[in-house]
C-alpha cells in the first residue's frame, strides 16, 4: 500500500464516525483530491481483494471502515458489540416523508400518514435522525423538519439522491384509471 493509503487507513480506524472526504484530505496537506480518491480506492481494493473482515464504505459524503455482514452474528453472539434497535414502522414512514419532502411540517406528515406523529417526531429528533431546519409560513409558524447526517449514516447512504426518485417509485397499485 502507498503511504497515503496507510495514513487514511489509520485515521479511519481511529474514528468511530465516518470521516468526510475533506477531513481526510486535511491529513496530508500535499495530497491532491485525486490522490486521496486514489488512496481510498486502493484501500477499498486492498480490503476486498486480499479478503479482510472489514470493508471501506462511503456513507453520507464520508468514509468508514465497517465489519463485513457475514461476521455480525458471531460478533453479536460473543457480545462484543450489539446492533442498534430497529426503527418502528411509524418511525420509518415519518422518516421516508421527511427525506423526500424536507423541509416538512408536522401537519403535512399527519395528513399523509393519517395518524398523529408528535411522539414519533420527538424520538426521531432525540436519536438525531431529524432536526428542525426552519419554520413554515402558516398559522403558528410550524417547525419544519429535515434529515441529518446521522440519517445518512443510519441507512448507510452516500447522499439523499441515492434514494429512488419519486418518479422511479413503481406504485404497485397504479393502474390506468377507469373512467368513473
Amino acid at each position: 500500500m502507498t503511504p497515503l493509503a496507510k495514513l487514511l487507513e489509520a485515521a479511519l480506524f481511529a474514528s468511530a464516525r465516518p470521516i468526510p472526504t475533506e477531513e481526510l484530505a486535511a491529513l496530508d496537506a500535499e495530497a491532491s483530491k485525486a490522490a486521496i480518491a486514489a488512496a481510498l480506492d486502493e484501500l477499498r481494493e486492498h480490503y476486498d481483494v486480499d479478503g479482510h473482515g472489514v470493508e471501506l464504505i462511503e456513507i453520507g459524503g464520508g468514509w468508514q471502515i465497517l465489519t463485513r455482514a457475514e461476521y455480525t452474528e458471531a460478533i453479536e453472539r460473543a457480545q462484543l458489540a450489539s446492533r442498534p434497535a430497529r426503527l418502528s414502522a411509524a418511525a420509518l414512514e415519518t422518516l421516508a416523508l421527511i427525506a423526500y419532502r424536507q423541509p416538512l411540517g408536522r401537519a403535512e406528515i399527519e395528513e399523509i400518514r393519517g395518524v398523529s406523529v408528535g411522539s414519533v417526531l420527538k424520538s426521531l429528533h432525540e436519536r438525531g435522525l431529524i432536526d428542525v431546519v426552519g419554520r413554515g409560513e402558516g398559522m403558528g409558524r410550524p417547525l419544519l423538519y429535515g434529515t441529518t447526517p446521522i440519517f445518512l449514516e443510519y441507512f448507510a447512504l452516500r447522499h439523499l439522491e441515492e434514494l429512488p426518485r419519486s418518479d422511479e417509485l413503481a406504485v404497485a397499485l397504479r393502474t390506468e384509471p377507469k373512467p368513473l
Binding site: T67, A96, A99, S166
Partner: peptide
Amino acid sequence: LEYQQMREVVDVLEKAGEERRSRFAR
C-alpha cells in the same frame, strides 16, 4: 396512492437500515 408511494420508500429505507445494522463500526 400517496401513502402507497411512501410505503415503497419505507421498504427501501428498511432494507438499507438492515444492511447497515448488519455491520459494526469501530
